[in-house]
Simulated scan of single mutants.
Amino acid sequence: MALFGALLFLFCLVFHWSCAYHMRMTSGGNMDLSYDINAPKKSANLSINSSLLAQARELNINLSATLEQALADLVRQRKRELWLAENREAIAAYAGFVEENGVFSDGLRGF
């Protein structure tokens, strides 16, 4: 029984971390530390719709900053999707366990 308790405790810790990870991954802003924001810039050749490019220049839109933010958002989204897919079984198992047994603090909380 002690082994089961220890395993459950570890599982809860991992699940709690995963929730914290999920919150960080979806919170937006500069909380995403999945890439080095201080890494040197690297030039890249891109093909962009000429009409869209003309409008962006007319509106003084910083193309590099805009692309970098869009890529960071897309990378964050894809990593989240991959993480959820990789952990789907564990999340379902934990949800089933909680549904069946409740959580350890059920008798302690007053709400």
Rank of each mutant, 00 (worst) to 15 (best):
Y21C: 02
Y21N: 06
M23D: 15
M25I: 07
T26Y: 04
L33E: 10
S34Q: 09
S34Y: 08
N38F: 12
P40K: 14
P40S: 15
P40F: 07
K41V: 08
K41Y: 05
S43Y: 03
S43E: 09
A44G: 00
A44T: 11
A44S: 06
N45L: 11
I48F: 06
S51R: 12
S51W: 02
L53I: 00
A54S: 13
Q55T: 07
A56N: 03
E58K: 13
E58D: 12
L59A: 15
N60A: 05
N60I: 00
I61L: 11
I61D: 04
N62Q: 09
N62Y: 01
N62C: 09
L63I: 15
L63K: 07
S64V: 10
A65W: 05
T66K: 11
E68I: 10
E68K: 15
E68L: 08
E68N: 13
Q69N: 11
A72Y: 01
A72H: 00
L74N: 11
V75L: 11
R78Y: 07
K79Y: 04
R80K: 13
R80H: 14
R80D: 13
R80F: 14
W83F: 15
L84D: 06
L84T: 06
L84Q: 07
L84E: 12
E86T: 02
N87V: 00
N87F: 05
R88T: 12
I91H: 04
I91Q: 04
I91K: 08
A92F: 05
A93D: 02
Y94H: 09
Y94R: 10
Y94I: 06
G96S: 14
F97M: 13
V98G: 00
V98Y: 03
V98N: 06
E99G: 11
E99L: 07
E99P: 00
E100P: 00
E100L: 13
N101F: 12
N101W: 01
N101K: 13
S105A: 08
G107I: 00
